[in-house]
Computed example of a mutant assay.
Amino acid sequence: MEAESGRKAGYQAGFTLRENELQASFPGVSGMRAAGTKSVKDGLAIELARSGYSTPEERQAYDRGYREGYQRSYRRAYDNAKRDGYNERYNMAYRRAYDNQYSISYRTGFADGKDKGYKAAYRSAYNSAYASFYEQYSNREYADQRAQGQSSGRATGQREGFEAGCAEQTKRGYNEGYQKMAAEVYPGAFEAGKQSGIAAADKYYAENSVLKAFGISFYDENSNGKFEAGENIMLRADLTNYGFQKSDAITITVKSERGEITLTPDLRAEGVNGRNKNAVNLNIGRLHDVVAPDADALVVTFMEKGRLVADYRQMYARTNPNKVVIINKDDTAIKEKAGWLFVGTVTKLNAGEKVLVIGEKDDWYKVRKSAFAGGSWNEGFVKKGKVSVQ
């Protein structure tokens, strides 16, 4: 089992190494920041291929066996690695935190580093249950010392413990320590696994599309930097396919957190040819003419074959030069003229509905229906006391 762990660590290291080489060799990739890397073919996601599985069923079988046997062998490997000092830098950072009794902050740094650094990298590279066992065993160490540091460790630990523990974990990543241990304890198995991983990465990239999204952003149609009422909002992104096979069409979904925007349905981008990239530039919707001048957030997701390629969230500020009033009570009458006697009712509106002010007469507003509202009426008058100015 231990030799198999070494082979698996080598496989994952080799797969990741070759994957990085394939992506780095793509023209124009230097300096770009990606929102995500996802691929799937015949039900097999790239995360499973990175972990050495050829079918989802293999992953399920592995998980069953892992729960039964891997914990015991991991404990042995963990103890050996600890004695041999592969995690020396981690222990140094931990001892510094322990000696100064600021382990609360260190534990925060540890968790943050684990979650944001090696855990994400580890899971994407290994996609196994290893992280849960590491957390279980590492958190058992020095439980009483951590409790002891609760009262006196905050101030110093916020600085040194966070820097020593979190920074080291996020920079180095747990996968580096794990691979180092595996390479030292099982060098033959590790090297064999590494070569197998390199070959598997070559095969996977040759047979699949592997998508990344770069430069995702929303912008206003006239590009003056203001998201104005009645204006179209645009989406730009670059979709890069590092694989050698053409991808399927990409489904794009946009949501607004505060509304008052009519979103374009069924957005799609064409499939990207192998080792190629496509620019996406789409009209994703139009702000309402009665939109509130406040902040909103737009969230976009890119999907291929039902799997997430990338997602992105952007805050933006909306402006509205129109004068807008909000109806205060249900069944508020919109009159034909500014007056009550012998004046017909155009329509009745409910509390919260908005109308555009296009004029004033005494205690009345002349109003017009929003272009995005329902109903057959167009213009009318409403008493000023029955509305609130937005």
Rank of each mutant, 00 (worst) to 15 (best):
K383H: 07
G380W: 01
N87L: 05
A143L: 11
G165R: 05
R76G: 07
N87R: 05
I358K: 11
Y137F: 14
G117I: 13
P265E: 09
S223G: 05
E184D: 13
L235E: 01
F227M: 02
N378K: 15
L17I: 00
E231P: 02
W340F: 12
D115R: 10
S223I: 11
S54Q: 12
G173F: 12
Y134T: 12
D115Q: 03
G243D: 05
T251M: 07
Q71K: 08
R89F: 10
Y312C: 00
G259E: 06
Y312F: 14
D248K: 08
S30L: 04
N91C: 04
I233S: 01
A213S: 07
G230N: 08
E68N: 13
Y53L: 05
N222M: 05
S151V: 15
G113Q: 13
G374V: 04
I233L: 02
A183S: 09
Y316F: 04
K277N: 09
S247M: 06
R7F: 15
D363M: 07
Q136H: 13
N278L: 11
L263E: 01
V389S: 02
R64Q: 09
A182S: 04
V29L: 00
E191V: 06
E360Q: 09
A249G: 09
A164E: 14
A167L: 10
R33C: 03
R236T: 13
S256I: 03
Y137E: 15
F342W: 13
L341F: 09
K337N: 13
E353C: 04
L239C: 02
A192D: 14
Q150L: 11
S376T: 15
E260S: 10
P265N: 05
E168I: 06
E228M: 02
Q71S: 14
D112P: 00
G274S: 08
A24P: 02
A201E: 03
Q179H: 13
T347S: 11
A279Q: 03
S25E: 03
K82R: 14
G243Y: 01
S132K: 14
K305M: 10
R236P: 00
K203A: 10
G375C: 06
E135L: 11
E163Y: 08
N276C: 01
E207K: 06
G271R: 06
A317L: 02
F302D: 05
E88P: 00
I326L: 10
T319A: 04
S151W: 09
E168F: 15
G65V: 06
F190E: 02
K38T: 12
A351R: 15
G6L: 09
V254A: 07
R76L: 09
R307Q: 15
Q390C: 03
E231G: 01
Q314K: 01
I198R: 12
Y312G: 00
A155R: 13
Q145E: 14
L356P: 08
A45S: 07
E176S: 07
Q23S: 00
L287A: 06
D331K: 05
Y86R: 05
K323Y: 04
Y137G: 00
